[in-house]
Design a protein around this nucleic acid. Structure first.
Lengths: 205, 205, 205, 205
DNA sequence: GATGAATGAGCTTTCATTCAT
DNA sequence: CATGAATGAAAGCTCATTCAT
């Protein structure tokens, strides 16, 4: 399944905001600016200017700035989890599943949702504690999917190191690609996924 | 050589500020607070309170807030580079050298300089562009050391993937440990280093 | 005559808005909220919410917020004056008339119109100057009725102090009951009226 | 004892702010403006302009606008209570004491503290609930002095009505003078006090 | 009539920075 | 060197009012 297809479903379910609605355009601009300049250096006036409205109008859609950050984060983490579930269900072997873990994350980081994903990772401390808890719930669900999968790989001898430790190391390696990988460079996203998979799995084919 | 020994040398050379001087205490507090709350959410008053002076007095030591952030970053990046140089010189085999790359970075992230290292990584966008350039120079020197070393490992067949790509993946994996590795947990820093090394090098123990 | 009877007449005459009409319900809610929270701390949205419409719709009934405050004030001051006229006409002796002055005011402050009466007294400065003038006219008519009556009482030797001064003192004493008198407490409104009358008239039972 | 003498003592004790200090000048201006335009229609910019500083500087002296209102109120209620205590101690007969109750209040309403006294009375709802409690404590102390005194007058047959009710009626009559009494008019403040005393006490001189 | 998104001026508050003492 | 009051620009947010639907 393609990400686009899933997003349409999530929009229909109300879990993700339609990017063509005023609120959705605001979230998109927020993701872009928060990533570019950081949350606290982005003013609501910047945000408003980006979507062509006035600063006061923002507060028709969000109660405060924190809620915008929350919106960006919760929607992308939701989409990541849902997409991962669907993709894992489509994979047959454990090896394929591990590949799915990696590719799914790379897809969200370097696809259209890249800004939101980067914000989710790098603006964590800027979110109010109460809302951190809500995002955390979702993120834990997502991590659980990783853990189950890597545990299975460990049981089958595909990997030898502690699955929990490996998850964190891989996650770090993938997340960091935000800073250097260029989608339109020499290496395709698939090749990058393969490199990471190689790092994850000892021996092979 | 221990980090402490090196730092004393760098202090003597004026490349790093004596942490017992007023300016040094300020930098230490800045590193801690910038990491904890983020640069823009840390006020100059917070900083002053942390070291027991009043906000106005800070500007006897630094021209502005940006210069404080710069101070934190430039000193840690300098120390990381210098320490890496020394440690690499002490290593004999290429394998050992790769290990040194990893351990050196882990040491800076989880040792006494951890706060500054985290700030270097996560507050990059907060630094003014002109000073970013200055830090970048140093960081490029540091990366060059990694590249040379990994290139050699590649030439010797220790690693098979593109050294540049591997460097970034490893760097990401190591940097991310900031978020999950606990120095006083079950796993020692050395064991962690070994895990990363295993991930880096195909084949043997 | 009862207040209710008079109000029906005033509604028929168009001097007071029917409290069951949308506009009337708005005025009632405004009186309540303006008294409770004060005019400037009551938002047009609060008002709309109270009567179950949306904020924009308010401006079909009133040109602006100031006009709502004016509506509350002018209607209650009108009713107070009209009611006082009727009641004075029904009184025979001067003593009875003074009693009517007092009771009429107490009735408006502690009856159904209490909120509006309190707003009239305590939100004076919030009203635009131009509209203050209009309310002032009515209020002066009302005061004239007091003055005439107290002057008569003075001429008859019922009171000895300056009628104008006495009017203000009594008015103050009555208005302040807003803050402490409880209609469902031990003292009936009539007993309260008697206490005030005693204060007003020297001498006899 | 004169009010000025008492205020000097209270300033020395730190219970009242020196009106010549920056903070004191701010409180004076706040009392004036809050009375004139109402608390919520007075902006901190108005306040700053009134004392010739910039709006930001206000927050060196007060944490927020609410604290300014609190400052105005708590200082005047404190002074009223302290002044009343001293004056009551100087009075010999009960009749004199009742006169002191009245005169003290008139003095605060029409003297230099008049603005603050008016704010205390008319901006009550604008104060945050937590701080209302603190002012309430002081005000209750003040009312207790009234009650004790009027109770004594009742025991001695000077007054016949319920002391508690009388206190409220008198208080209302006095407070309302804010709206009509002019210190530079025909009637002196002493004459006004006498009128109120006459209203309070049956029988006479 | 009612809606509700948008407006835009204006609010309180924050904060890096300055400077006379 | 340290102080701390003052600065002033800019922040997040509020809210009466408008208007196309």
């Amino acid at each position: 399944m393609r990400v686009g297809t899933l997003l349409r479903r999530l929009i229909a379910e109300g879990q993700v905001t339609d990017p063509d609605s005023p609120k959705g355009r605001l979230l998109g601009a927020a993701a872009r600016l928060f990533r570019q300049k950081g949350y606290s250096r982005t003013t609501v006036r910047d945000l408003a200017a980006e979507v062509g409205i006035l600063s006061g109008s923002i507060f028709h859609h969000f109660a405060n700035k924190d809620e915008i950050l929350f919106g960006v984060m919760i929607e992308v983490v939701t989409a990541m989890e849902e997409m991962l579930k669907v993709s894992l269900a489509e994979a047959t072997t454990t090896r394929e599943k591990v590949r799915v873990l990696i590719d799914n994350e790379l897809l969200f980081i370097h696809g259209k949702t890249g800004d939101a994903a980067a914000v989710l990772i790098y603006e964590w401390r800027a979110l109010s504690e109460e809302r951190q808890r809500q995002v955390l719930e979702r993120r834990d669900n997502y991590y659980r999917l990783w853990n189950e999968c890597l545990q299975q790989a460990h049981d089958e001898g595909l990997i030898t190191v502690d699955p929990d430790c490996l998850r964190q190391l891989l996650h770090g390696a993938i997340v960091w690609t935000v800073h250097w990988y260029e989608a339109d460079g020499e290496m395709s996203l698939e090749q990058l996924g393969e490199q990471v998979l190689n790092m994850a799995l000892k021996g092979e084919p």
